[in-house]
Design a protein around this nucleic acid. Structure first.
Lengths: 216, 216
DNA sequence: ATACGGAAATTGTCTTACAAGTACACATGC
DNA sequence: GCATGTGTACTTGTAAGACAATTTCCGTAT
């Protein structure tokens, strides 16, 4: 293989590698990805590359019209708002349920602890624990399909983030504080208040992100 | 072409045809669908059939493990409950928003009128307008991604229904009445009450469906 | 009757090939 | 000079054939 691929299935390996390259920013939004390019890059057959590209198109990371070469999706501010709205619906419900049970997921607590430790570090480093924090809330719902849907939205969020290399949208300190407050309200069983904090948290993030995307 | 296909793209046409055959019950849950079978049936190449099958696997209508022939997904009662839970999250939010705006989608009203007219008819005939009623509520959110997610869940619901040919889970009259009450509460701006009615409506439907699936 | 071995069936991938559609550049006419 | 039309190059869509790898199932032998 031309590029290192954790060997599972060729198509799956290509998909995984392309995802990583997209998220890392190596393949910036707008970059063209022809089937032949992918095929030669990984030294696989074109049908294999095609299958990988189609998978990524389906998950929203790539965009392609008929007979046109696929490009890394360039999300608009309206897309970002739409994604965050959808996220908010799911997460708010998760938070309400958790609060009703006064159950604070340990993964969420740990992820936020990680964020707190990164207060001085590069804003890019907090993306990962931040995503884990929110994912932990949804995971706690225990619904396979809800988690799957949320995972797909998370992918698009990550893609958004690659638009904004300067990811200093919110201060790490504020994010950690809002998360902590959210967990506090959950532990107190304040479902409505917790949901409201979450919605505002996502809403301000959404606004900042949309604003940054507009300015490109 | 061996079977009539509305000509768009070969793969898309095969997908559409297979979906129709699955929903119609011609391809009952559990039926094997080998790539060669599909290829010969539609007189297309195996890669084309493969692409169509992979698409349907991704949307949950078919199930396949590596090196194993695809089968029409056989949903368990737990799946049904999971699907309805996820549905409920989205629909409840839609209903809350609509109530806050006191906005009753005309499509929902029309779909329920259609149900009301079908009070004496076969329970199977109400599936379609019932789905349209609920979809109209979600559509009103105006979120592309939320609608897309909901559409996928709807597909799985339809698949559930093919398990239970005797779809007389609830009386048509009761369904129409609950829908009407829901629309009434929306028009009155009673967000919380409307959401509660919806959740109970879906919960009882989910229970009945799960019960029927268990008894197979 | 059970366990082992092998054959059949199926999917995974590659190679090659051609058809069809899109986009861009170039030339032509106004 | 600009708009328009055409043609070519590029890319994707689909097909056909071939081989490897894996799973399943059946037959046989113990």
């Amino acid at each position: 293989m031309a590029a290192r691929l954790g060997v599972v299935s060729v198509v799956q390996a290509v998909i995984r590698s392309l995802r990583a390259r997209i998220f890392s920013g190596e393949l910036a939004p707008g970059t063209s990805l022809a089937e032949v390019d992918v095929a030669t890059h990984y030294e696989v057959a074109r049908p294999t590359a095609k299958a990988a590209l189609e998978n990524l198109v389906a998950s929203g990371l790539l965009t392609r019209n008929a007979h046109q070469t696929a490009r890394v999706t360039l999300l608009s501010s309206r897309d970002a708002i739409d994604i965050y709205r959808t996220r908010a619906i799911i997460e708010a419900e998760a938070v309400r349920l958790l609060a009703a049970q006064r159950e604070v997921p340990s993964e969420a607590r740990e992820a936020n602890a990680e964020i707190t430790e990164l207060v001085g570090a590069s804003p890019i480093d907090i993306i990962d624990p931040d995503i884990r924090f929110h994912a932990a809330l949804v995971q706690a719902l225990g619904s396979r399909r809800t988690s799957a849907i949320y995972a797909q939205l998370t992918d698009e969020i990550r893609l958004c983030m690659t638009h904004v290399q300067d990811a200093t949208l919110l201060s790490t300190k504020d994010i950690a504080a809002e998360h902590a407050r959210l967990l506090q309200l959950i532990s107190e069983g304040e479902a409505a208040a917790a949901a409201k904090v979450l919605e505002e948290h996502l809403h301000t993030a959404s606004n900042k992100l949309a604003e940054h995307l507009e300015s490109l």
